[in-house]
Simulated scan of single mutants.
Amino acid sequence: MNKLPGVNYLYMAESLPSDENTMMNFVDSLASFFAQSWTRGRPDNMTSQEHGDLAATCRARLDSLSKSLPGHLIPVVAQVRENMDGLFSGSYPIVLTHGDLSEMNMLVDPDSGALTGVVDWAEASLLPFGFSLYALDSVLGDMYLTGWTCHENADQARRRFWDTFCSIAQPSHAERQQMEVARLVGILFRYGTPVSSGFPGMLGIRGEDDGSLAFLEAFI
Rank of each mutant, 00 (worst) to 15 (best):
R40I: 08
A31W: 00
G52E: 11
D44N: 09
H51Q: 12
D44L: 12
S66G: 14
M46V: 07
Q49E: 15
M46L: 15
L54M: 14
L62D: 04
V27R: 01
L30I: 05
G52K: 13
A60C: 10
W38N: 05
A55L: 04
R42C: 13
A60G: 08
L30V: 09
G41F: 07
S37Q: 14
L30K: 01
F33I: 09
F33A: 02
T47H: 09
D28W: 04
E50L: 13
A55D: 12
H51S: 03
R40N: 14
L65Y: 03
L62G: 00
V27M: 02
F26N: 02
S64A: 10
G52V: 08
Q36D: 09
G52M: 13
K67V: 10
E50V: 09
S29D: 06
T47E: 14
A55F: 13
A35P: 05
M46E: 14
A56C: 15
S48N: 15
R40D: 12
T22A: 04
F26Q: 02
A60P: 07
M23T: 00
P43R: 11
G41S: 09
T57V: 11
M24L: 15
S29V: 14
D63Q: 15
Q49N: 12
C58M: 12
Q49C: 03
D28I: 08
A31E: 03
R61P: 02
D53P: 01
R61H: 10
G52A: 09
T57H: 06
R42I: 13
D53K: 14
C58F: 10
A31I: 13
Q49D: 15
D28P: 01
W38Y: 14
G52Y: 13
Q36R: 10
D63L: 15
D53E: 11
H51N: 15
R42S: 10
R40H: 08
A31N: 04
A56K: 06
S48A: 13
A31Y: 01
L65D: 01
